[in-house]
Amino acid sequence: MAMTVELPALEQTDARTDAMTPPASSARLARYARPALGLLLPVGIAIVWEIVVWLGLSSGRLVPPPTKIFATIMELAKSGELSRHIIATLSRVGVGFGLGVVAGTLLGAVSGYWDLARRLLDPTVQALRAIPSLAWVPLFILWLGIFETSKVALIAAGVFFPVYLGVMGAILSVDRKIVEVGRTFRLSGPAMIRRILLPAALPAYVVALRVGLGLGWMFVVAAELMGASEGLGYLLLDGQQLGKPAQILAAIVIFAILGKATDWLIEIATAPLLRWQDAFGRQSGGS
């Protein structure tokens, strides 16, 4: 008798679950459609400005239409200049980002885990963090010369501070109850870091990496104003000196594409490490 009563209820529950589960094709379509939504705003603005210039409502001299910017990018690509500038900028950002991440992670972890180190290091680091990026330029040129070393050092300095602050803040914000559980199980210092502090701090660390990468792209412009003969920052300066607004905007567009692409790579690379999260962004289908 119990079976005859429970079976229909189970069948109704399964039917409701199947009805609520979206088909696989719809899920795939939604997964590809979400990134495309981010293109609506920039593409919409570009189309509107193209129409405005085409109708003669603006001359487009200072802000060229998208077709002219695209033509400038194609000219630079055909001449081989574009690839040379992109490779130079990417290499500087890559090396500077790597050095800044290593230094920021190590010092941030030490300051977050060890109270004495935080009292010694953090006031100085926070004071240095308030110094504008351009203020470092003459000092780095004086110390390291005008070539690649000073440029990479400036980018590394820009990446270091958000990574340091993110790592230290993430460790300090770990729930005390979780740490007490580790102490109850008598975990050693390395085991406490590996099994409790590192997983708990990882989401904030990923955010710090993305913020650091964004500042690395900002600092590379200042770095490439330091006597560079190639790079997207040099392309900006060259366009300004020669009065070529299309070239300036072309460099800005390429900066935006490269910055978003590298940020997306970090997001993709770290996604497997954050699958355990039961966060609101994942529930609502975040980016």
Rank of each mutant, 00 (worst) to 15 (best):
residue 65 P to L: 12
residue 27 A to T: 12
residue 112 G to Q: 10
residue 263 D to L: 15
residue 85 H to P: 07
residue 106 L to W: 04
residue 217 W to N: 12
residue 167 V to G: 04
residue 185 F to V: 09
residue 92 R to N: 07
residue 39 L to P: 00
residue 12 Q to M: 07
residue 252 I to T: 14
residue 147 F to E: 08
residue 115 D to Q: 02
residue 140 F to N: 01
residue 49 W to R: 01
residue 26 S to L: 10
residue 234 Y to G: 09
residue 119 R to T: 03
residue 123 P to Y: 05
residue 168 M to I: 07
residue 169 G to C: 15
residue 107 L to Q: 02
residue 98 G to T: 10
residue 212 G to L: 01
residue 280 F to G: 14
residue 273 L to F: 14
residue 240 Q to K: 07
residue 108 G to M: 06
residue 139 L to Y: 11
residue 220 V to N: 01
residue 255 F to T: 04
residue 108 G to V: 13
residue 140 F to L: 08
residue 214 G to Y: 02
residue 131 I to Y: 13
residue 143 W to R: 15
residue 95 V to R: 00
residue 195 R to D: 11
residue 117 A to N: 15
residue 250 A to C: 10
residue 67 T to M: 10
residue 103 A to H: 00
residue 73 I to G: 01
residue 131 I to A: 07
residue 40 L to M: 03
residue 219 F to G: 00
residue 64 P to N: 03
residue 58 S to M: 04
residue 155 I to D: 14
residue 247 Q to N: 04
residue 142 L to A: 15
residue 61 R to L: 07
residue 275 R to H: 06
residue 133 S to K: 03
residue 124 T to S: 11
residue 78 K to T: 08
residue 5 V to E: 13
residue 244 K to R: 05
residue 88 A to D: 01
residue 226 M to L: 03
residue 57 L to R: 06
residue 168 M to P: 10
residue 147 F to I: 12
residue 89 T to N: 03
residue 252 I to R: 05
residue 210 R to V: 13
residue 33 A to G: 09
residue 238 D to F: 15
residue 28 R to M: 15
residue 185 F to A: 12
residue 146 I to K: 07
residue 62 L to D: 02
residue 275 R to P: 05
residue 148 E to V: 04
residue 251 A to T: 13
residue 29 L to C: 10
residue 55 L to F: 10
residue 245 P to N: 07
residue 19 A to H: 10
residue 241 Q to W: 05
residue 33 A to V: 11
residue 13 T to N: 06
residue 114 W to A: 13
residue 263 D to T: 07
residue 90 L to S: 06
residue 82 L to G: 14
residue 88 A to G: 03
residue 52 V to M: 02
residue 98 G to Q: 05
residue 33 A to Y: 08
residue 153 A to C: 12
residue 239 G to A: 12
residue 193 I to F: 08
residue 108 G to R: 12
residue 9 A to P: 08
residue 254 I to H: 11
